[in-house]
Amino acid sequence: MLRVTQVTKKFGELTAVNNLSFEVAQGQVFGIAGPNGAGKSTVYNLITGLYDFEGSISFKDQNISGMTPHCIARLGIARTFQIPQTFPSLTVAKTVEVGSYFGSQTGFDRGHVNEVLAFVNLADKREAPTGSLNLLDKKMLMIGAALATRPEILMLDEPMAGSNSKEILRLMDLIRRINQDLGVTIILIEHFMKVLTELTQKLLIIETGTEICCGDPREVTSDPRVIECYLGDSHD
């Protein structure tokens, strides 16, 4: 469904992503992990058209390299950011409506907006200003705005960051429902290995923009190269 082929991104002298290739299948929950500064969010920025790059990215066999972010969103690739990118003066309902107005190929649908608000458990806060929400609700809201675009792929950037264990369980449940009930393919950047091994079917580990290994999450997390990458070299 999504194919990233030999993608490289340089910022001046720094190579943030180095000749990276991977494929995400339809209906899959695909995980991306790696230490801080590994280039995970940069990969998201490349897929969503925020940066130009070398190599190619295709979605459903259509080359999306060089497309503008709003065109990519309208094709069916939605994302969230690690820090929820809300619109502080808009209400919860208006924020979700923005996604439906601009990102959905089928056009604005108030019924769908209401369904999305209920799906992310924000129906009772629909008239609340976005700025008044707590962090978890802000995350839920921006997932809702992304879902309102009727995406085929939803890319979540460290959704568990800053959450307590109860909130993590709620977010995990939401991600499962998005994948299983709505049939949306998920790409998930996350640091929590437990979350990745429970949710994902395939896991890619990168370091300094280069692939370390990719495959079944349980095998990947026990790979010595991944352990070294996370814990450092052992001198025992």
Binding site: T48, L50, T68, P69, H70, A73, R74, A78, R79, F81, Q85, T86, F87, P88, S89, L90, K94, E97, V98, G99, Y101, F102, G103, S104, M142, A145, A146, A148, T149
Partner: peptide
């Protein structure tokens, strides 16, 4: 209006606006 909503969204959060399909340019 739809355009007015997009203007407010871009003013408050250009990155967030783009990824929900608003043509920033």
């Amino acid at each position: 209006t739809r355009t007015g909503m997009s203007v407010r969204a871009v003013a408050q959060n250009p990155a967030g606006a783009q990824i929900v399909g608003i043509p920033k340019e």
